[in-house]
Design a binder for these strands. Structure first.
Lengths: 189, 189
DNA sequence: GTCAAAAGATTCGAGCACTAATCATTTGAG
DNA sequence: CTCAAATGATTAGTGCTCGAATCTTTTGAC
């Protein structure tokens, strides 16, 4: 049903080997695969990957704070709040205002939450983890190193490139509003 | 800042170097970095990465269909519809019912859309692409190969594991040793 | 003591992504 | 021809993700 041949179309680069294109494309497919995996987890176990990751984070520093959880799972606090809302409404975590500093909220596992953590369906990827474990060790490490290399590049990107990108040189011109409705909010330039 | 202990926090595995943990963690950070980059693109150029990718796909097979675009960018049609809505409201693409088969909708670039494609900020990652290009060629290829390896594992996962996952019992995968622990029932919710 | 700044949690608005359901149209079996 | 199935686009509903407000409480400078 879905695309079996995702390789051909999108990027017109005819460059035969184009490592960067391959890299970018692989990243997009990894993202998709992670998402699909999470949905499968959801239908099978009523919990998504992000929820499971946050649940585990709560269990590790048990009187946990939202901000701690966010930091430890590399997500924004806004995102984590939403996830915690859902975990709470499922009865897996409990929120409780800290009495000494009433700004902070303490997070606890409920008995159900604890039970789930104990029998948890493997940290993240389930069968992917198994597949990886079955690879030769040196390949495991080269994969890890390659991914971390990409992470490094991307996160450096975030820092260095920010000012450059801000005042982007990309503007597709668009003077003289020849087309129908020029004054959309797309006044690039 | 963030947890600089990639191994310790989220995943309980005590395996000394834990390549799989590193891999999984790196994947999550890559996903985040891609998202953050897209947001930066948005503030700088009024277009997000998914929108740009779809715009490029439209431009490649110009009387394009939604389903073609979806297939070529590896997203579901539902997702692409939403993206096309936004591209249309920005005046970058135009929709038009096909006259011979009125189920079909033809997609065209507007002049603005065409202009944006021509001056487009590199297919996906902008400065990331630059960073990658500056790496030694052999490293570029080893990164690409590693990512594709992961893609292969994950997409195989999707196919093989689906029936297994569907009906509940999960492979715990803890107990890294040999104990394949018979399926745990976790009846949450 | 007072009040501004900081810190922590949350809400708001927007975009992306999916599956499942729906609607319109075309095709094809009888 | 007729109507069910197939096809294509879309909507409905849920969840993840973010940055930018907002609200509450604490801290600290004066």
């Amino acid at each position: 049903m879905v695309d079996q041949q995702p390789g051909v179309a999108v990027l017109g680069e005819q460059d035969p080997a184009a490592a960067d294109t391959r890299i970018l494309r692989a990243i997009r497919r990894i993202i998709r695969a992670v998402d699909l995996h999470s949905r499968k987890l959801m239908t099978g176990h009523q919990i998504t990957t992000p929820q499971l990751v946050c649940l585990l984070a709560v269990s590790e520093c048990e009187p946990a704070r939202s901000s701690e959880v966010a930091k430890s799972v590399s997500l924004s606090t806004a995102t984590v709040i939403g996830i915690l809302d859902r975990l709470e409404s499922k009865g897996l975590v409990r929120r409780e205002r800290n009495t000494t500093d009433r700004r902070v909220v303490n997070l606890w596992l409920t008995p159900d939450g604890r039970r789930l953590v104990e029998t948890a369906p493997s940290p993240l990827q389930d069968t992917l983890a198994g597949s990886i474990e079955r690879l030769p060790t040196d390949e495991q490490f080269s994969i890890a190193a390659a991914l971390e290399r990409v992470v490094g590049l991307m996160e450096a990107d975030q820092l260095d490139a920010a000012p450059l990108l801000e005042s982007g040189p990309i503007a597709p011109s668009r003077e003289a509003g020849t087309s129908a409705e020029p004054t959309k909010e797309l006044s690039i330039a």
